[in-house]
């Protein structure tokens, strides 16, 4: 265990834990856009910037992104230092210039008193903040169907050669976890389309409800050795089956009791 001070509060934390987690556990409002527990910290949005110092540093201060900074004994953290708040505001302003049409970023900016970006707004913006969550989650799940391409301000998220990604299994994890909801997908009947690739949704063999894609189910049974048959029925029908089976067993025991 290490002991540190965050905004005046003395706290304990597990060694190796990242500062941002401890800050969030304290209920302190530090914004972050690219952080997700499913994947390694990335440090792209830089909003979780905090000021750190130590008694032994003689007044010297350092600015670090808390999502990537492991807790240290004796650390004195200021999450609302003037310089930190100013930097955060500038960063949000920059994001707003990149994504002028994103309601999520507009809201975040409004929280910091910014109604309009003071920089040159991007024309025809796709409103992607390039946090990389989609690609990182996809890669972590073992598919790596999409990735970042190009450099600098031209960086964007794309499938290989901008064609339907061969490794995509249509799980939607990229779209669902996108903090600005900019990855489009459609569902119509038993067809789901994402990244210009069409997928068949499994139809519950009992009730006809749509569940996950056929490709995802196949991938799961192959990767994790789960019988493919499990995926043919929806969760509600699985429960009904369970109830029936348990009821049947109960019926047997009732008969047994009657017989004895």
């Amino acid at each position: 265990m290490v002991h540190l001070t965050i905004d005046g509060t003395r706290v304990q934390a597990k060694e190796g834990e990242m500062l941002l987690k401890v800050i969030k556990q304290l209920g302190i409002d530090v914004p972050s856009l690219c952080d997700h527990d499913a994947v390694e910290p990335f440090g792209a949005c830089r909003l979780c910037l905090v000021e750190i110092t130590k008694q032994s540093w003689d007044g010297w201060k350092k600015y670090v992104t808390s999502c990537l900074y492991p807790v240290e004994d004796g650390l004195i953290v200021n999450t609302q230092a003037e310089k930190v708040v100013e930097a955060r505001k500038t960063l949000i302003d920059l994001q707003l210039a990149r994504c002028p049409g994103s309601p999520e970023i507009q809201q975040l900016a409004a929280d910091y008193g910014i109604t309009q970006t003071s920089y040159e707004p991007k024309i025809d913006s796709d409103n992607c903040i390039l946090c990389g969550l989609c690609t990182r989650i996809c890669e972590h799940m073992g598919f790596a169907a999409i990735s970042t391409v190009d450099r600098g301000p031209d960086r964007r998220i794309a499938s290989p050669l901008d064609e339907p990604p061969p490794d995509c299994i249509g799980c939607l994890a990229c779209a669902i976890n996108c903090p600005t909801n900019v990855i489009p997908y459609t569902e119509k009947g038993n067809k789901r389309t994402i990244w210009d690739k069409e997928f068949e949704l499994i139809t519950c063999s009992k009730c006809g409800r749509k569940t996950i894609t056929r490709d995802f189910a196949r991938a799961l049974s192959k990767m994790r050795d789960i019988p493919e048959a499990y995926f043919e029925v929806c969760d509600a029908c699985h429960r009904a089956e369970t109830a029936t089976n348990m009821g049947r067993i109960a019926g047997w025991s009732r008969r047994e009791e009657a017989a004895s």
Partner: peptide, 23 residues
Amino acid sequence: IDQEKCVKCMACVAACPFGCSIH
């Protein structure tokens, strides 16, 4: 389920043969 880790891909909902992971 660690809600902070979960990416809501529905794999567990589809995989549980007893239907006990719920969306």
